[in-house]
Simulated scan of single mutants.
Amino acid sequence: MPRPRTQISPHLDYADLTQRYVQCQDAGEKNRWLVIRLLSHPKTPMSIEQTAEICGLSCSGVRKIARRYNAEGAVGLVNRQRLNPGGNRLALSDEQQRLLRQRLQSAPDDGGLWSGPKVGEYIETYFGICLHPSTAWKYLRRLGLSLQVPHPVHHQSATLEQQAEFKAGLAGHVAWLRSLFPNREIVIWAEDEARLGLQPIVRRVWAPIGERPSAHHSRRYQWVYTYGFVHPATGASYFLLLPRANVSMMQMALELFAAQVNPHRQQLIILLVDQAAWHMSQKLQVPPGIFFYPLLPYTLQLQPTECVWSLLREAIANQVFDNLDALEDVLVKRCQWLMQHPVIVQGKVGFDWIQAI
């Protein structure tokens, strides 16, 4: 025998239900208003099955919403978290949020680091709102904060104002070269070196819950240097594996790069480099058509090539190599793959401020 059609109590007429549905800002609550609205249409009320398909719910879920509405009216559809301690009913005022955000900028009274329980204690002491320690962290979410590991930055790194001046200076330098050479293409590349060796790199991997993965490990101190050239605008790249980082190796890398990327000297290449000794040495003879543009000291965040090393290290992570030859075999294949996939590289090195120049 077929189940009888679910009847909806007339707590609100169809116009009121439509208005509540349109004005509701909470996604879950809005969906529940849609359920009641579809079931109580004055001319063509929908079945439980049709309503469940439209709202993305199960038939039992739709019946549960209908029963709650019939028993409690509009109150049965609201987001009940609003009525719980720590919900929106106890949300801090704008002034209290400003004071809390200001307090979080300095260390807590014990000199340690802020945590959910410490935030809850502060809120209870100064604002009179008692929260369970396990839920106090939600106030940090309301302030737009998240738990993150700080990015290490050298204490002598350039300030934001100095970085802005550097970017403006680079843009002015490019404009100057374009005025001097209107018939030549001016492009910006970046170069850096990464030291990779037999000392293993450990990376996180996905694994079944309850089973901690392991990776073989053996510390040895033999190295190879990867010289990387990247073009932020397109993701084009050029890599070399050399035994050392010094003036003679840099000279070789520059000559091979110029021959590969700009053999007919049709372009003028501005090459962003850090201020390492082998970059700034007077013994280094920069090939024609390439102009060095030194980065600010200790400011790696301005170096696009720094961002590509994670793609290179990924290929050798969680592995142990018997010797440098075995390591270089993997690195060569990875470098070739990166050079053949500029879109992947561009996603890492395509700094907006460089592409805008």
Score class of each variant (00 low, 15 high):
4 P>F: 12
12 L>D: 07
29 E>H: 06
30 K>F: 05
31 N>I: 02
35 V>G: 00
36 I>Y: 05
39 L>G: 02
44 T>E: 15
48 I>H: 00
49 E>V: 13
50 Q>E: 15
54 I>V: 14
55 C>R: 00
56 G>A: 01
56 G>E: 11
60 S>P: 07
65 I>D: 04
68 R>S: 13
70 N>R: 07
71 A>P: 03
75 V>L: 14
88 N>K: 14
91 A>S: 15
91 A>D: 14
91 A>N: 13
94 D>I: 12
96 Q>V: 11
96 Q>E: 15
98 R>L: 10
98 R>G: 09
101 R>P: 07
104 L>Y: 00
111 G>N: 10
111 G>S: 09
118 K>R: 11
118 K>C: 06
120 G>N: 07
121 E>C: 13
121 E>I: 05
121 E>A: 15
122 Y>M: 13
124 E>H: 15
127 F>D: 02
129 I>W: 09
131 L>I: 09
132 H>C: 15
132 H>L: 15
134 S>Y: 14
134 S>R: 15
141 R>T: 13
141 R>N: 14
144 G>I: 08
147 L>C: 11
147 L>D: 03
150 P>T: 05
151 H>F: 13
152 P>V: 09
157 S>I: 10
157 S>Q: 08
158 A>Y: 00
162 Q>D: 09
163 Q>L: 07
165 E>W: 11
178 R>F: 04
178 R>W: 04
185 E>Q: 15
188 I>Q: 10
193 E>M: 07
199 Q>K: 14
202 V>A: 06
205 V>C: 05
206 W>F: 09
211 E>N: 13
221 Y>E: 15
227 Y>L: 09
227 Y>N: 05
228 G>H: 04
229 F>A: 00
230 V>N: 09
232 P>A: 08
232 P>Q: 10
234 T>Y: 08
239 F>E: 03
241 L>T: 06
244 R>L: 10
245 A>V: 01
247 V>Q: 07
250 M>E: 09
253 A>L: 10
256 L>G: 02
257 F>S: 01
259 A>Y: 03
259 A>P: 08
263 P>T: 00
265 R>W: 02
266 Q>H: 12
270 I>D: 05
271 L>I: 06
272 L>A: 09
273 V>M: 07
277 A>V: 11
279 H>V: 03
280 M>K: 13
281 S>F: 03
281 S>H: 07
284 L>S: 09
284 L>I: 13
284 L>E: 10
284 L>N: 11
285 Q>G: 04
285 Q>R: 14
287 P>V: 08
288 P>A: 05
300 L>A: 15
300 L>F: 08
301 Q>R: 14
302 L>R: 02
302 L>Y: 00
303 Q>F: 03
307 C>Y: 12
310 S>P: 05
313 R>G: 05
318 N>I: 04
322 D>V: 11
326 A>H: 12
330 V>D: 00
332 V>W: 14
335 C>N: 09
340 Q>H: 04
345 V>H: 05
347 G>H: 04
347 G>T: 02
347 G>Y: 06
347 G>I: 03
348 K>Q: 11
352 D>N: 10
